[in-house]
Design a protein around this nucleic acid. Structure first.
Lengths: 112, 112
DNA sequence: CAAATATACATAATTTTCTTATACATAGAA
DNA sequence: TTCTATGTATAAGAAAATTATGTATATTTG
């Protein structure tokens, strides 16, 4: 907590992208994967993650499948068909955002 | 309206960066400059812009100077000393964000 | 000349998306 | 046995937008 350098709105994109790469994942696994990929720089908090997963599911972008491992619950999420499409859209939007920020922050680069 | 592709939290950085490049600007001018630099892709709405300017001013990052042009008001904003420092911080954070997103979205690239 | 558009500021209600704190429960390590 | 890890969840509140108005002057266009 407290070290968040993420702009708001990017969490959905991260979740979707991870599910595109990893087929199915559960919540806790996502938090660990993000920590690993960013070498600890970024920590996804549960308070942000679970509501986001629930929303993506409610919006029909994710399917959920409950598994019991030992005596504990896991909820595996995977992309639906429309989730796969939306992932592509979100990634495009992110590229667009990066380009836009580049134009604003370093206009010289876009002249050539 | 409606075409916003900005992640929340990036508007402050944009404003600060523009003021770093242009010394002093007024609100409407900022909206036009952003439109120009992004070739119309990005439109800063007043409902976001003016509260953001007021907050930056309240936080001591901007100074304001009211000018009368014809019969109309203009409020010119410029960076204070601490605003200049904060601009550097915000730009660093943005670079950090870009790197983090790169690690998450295209992990292959960060291997080399 | 009238009407539409551009210039210029502002705020209020609402929504989205976080942070922070709390809660519950099992499993493993110290 | 206590601390940490694993695993999910929600509630209160804050931050930062969107959307919709409101007010006023200046300019362009039909």
């Amino acid at each position: 907590m407290g070290n968040q350098k993420l702009y708001k709105g990017s969490l959905q994109t991260i979740i979707l992208k991870l599910l595109e790469s990893n087929d199915k994942m559960y919540g806790y696994e996502i938090t660990q994967k993000v920590k690993e990929l960013t070498k600890g720089e970024l920590k996804i908090t549960e308070g942000a993650l679970y509501p986001a997963l629930h929303k993506l599911e409610a919006d029909g972008l994710l399917d959920v499948e409950v598994a019991k491992v030992g005596n504990r619950l896991r909820k595996y999420y995977k992309l639906t068909e429309s989730g796969t499409k939306e992932t592509a859209n979100k990634l495009d939007e992110m590229q667009e955002f990066l380009r836009t920020m580049q134009q604003l922050v370093n206009p010289k680069l876009s002249l050539e």
